[in-house]
Amino acid sequence: MSISISSDEFESAASYLSNSTALSGVSNDVKLELYALYKSITVSPRPQASRPSLFEFTARAKWDAWDKLGRENPDSNTELWRARYLEIARSLGWKEDSPATPDTPVPEDISSRSNSSSVHSGGGGDGMGAAVSTMSKPLPLPEDADRPHGFAVSGDGEALKRFFDKHPEADLDSLDSYGYTALHLAADRGNEDILRILLDKGANPNIQDVDEFTALELAEISGHDRIVSILREYVS
């Protein structure tokens, strides 16, 4: 069945969703779907930028939603995406005869990355209204600051060496509160010195994180080519 949706209808729905305060109670899943649909329709079927880091929670969740939509719909059927976008808009109160706002906010690019994890009510661009709250995870916990996980994020190789001098029996593969090893964090952040220290000490590169990614896969997703080359020498 052929679907025909005018650009005026889509722009009207996007304007409504970008400015409607009614979205303050909408679930994050719906907001992420709207974001992914909007970006796939107006920018590209899948994101072109590298996946945001582990601690850029909002940007990472948006990137994942956008990428998932493109992967699950390889034919890039824009009309079906538009139809789904309008279906959600109607369920949230938009009507076909709603006038488009002249100055529809331009959706922020995925490279404009925010670490905020709070929900903002009211208009927020992205063609979807309120800003997305994705995870309740804060930035690295204070207790991790003086552990390998904290050094993996900060990139302080000398501090990591001193830590192992004091704690030679430390568990190299321990998980932090979010389910990441220090090696995961070093690979995701591209901290080569930390990565080499951990690998030389015997850290296991085959452990998967909470999303079932290994350190190698995190480095590949983040575009850290040197880290990828190093890890490939260690993976089984």
Rank of each mutant, 00 (worst) to 15 (best):
L198Y: 00
A130P: 05
S154F: 03
L198F: 00
V119D: 07
G129H: 00
W81S: 09
D97S: 13
G155N: 05
E33P: 14
S133M: 10
D97N: 11
T78S: 03
G157Y: 02
P107Y: 03
E158V: 11
D103N: 14
D225I: 15
R84F: 08
A65D: 09
P138G: 07
D171A: 09
A36K: 08
E158I: 08
S133N: 14
W66I: 09
E79P: 08
S50H: 13
F57M: 07
S112V: 14
S111N: 15
S27F: 00
H120S: 10
S27A: 15
I230F: 04
V210I: 12
E9A: 08
S116Q: 05
H149Y: 04
F10P: 01
R84K: 09
I3F: 08
P140C: 00
S20T: 07
E96Y: 11
R51D: 01
N19G: 01
K95Y: 14
I88V: 15
S12W: 02
P148K: 02
I110C: 12
I194W: 01
F10S: 00
A59L: 09
G123K: 00
L183W: 05
P74V: 06
G25K: 02
N19L: 02
P142L: 03
E56R: 12
P148D: 03
W81Y: 13
P45R: 03
D188E: 09
T104H: 04
G157I: 00
R196W: 02
R226V: 12
A65M: 04
T58Q: 13
I227S: 08
S20Y: 00
T134G: 14
L17H: 02
S18A: 05
L92S: 02
K166E: 10
R82W: 02
I221D: 13
A152N: 03
D64S: 08
D200S: 15
E158T: 11
D188P: 04
Y35K: 06
E108I: 13
A219Q: 07
P140H: 03
R82M: 11
D193F: 04
N19C: 01
V26Y: 01
G93A: 07
G223C: 09
L54Y: 07
A186R: 09
P168V: 02
T214Q: 08
S91E: 12
L23P: 01
K166F: 15
N73F: 11
A61E: 15
D211T: 13
Y38M: 09
L141H: 13
R71I: 10
S20N: 01
S222A: 15
L199Y: 00
K95S: 10
P47H: 02
K95M: 12
A219M: 12
F213H: 10
D211F: 14
G25Y: 00
S27T: 13
N19T: 05
Q48H: 06
A215D: 10
K68F: 08
N19F: 00
E108Y: 13
R226P: 07
D173S: 06
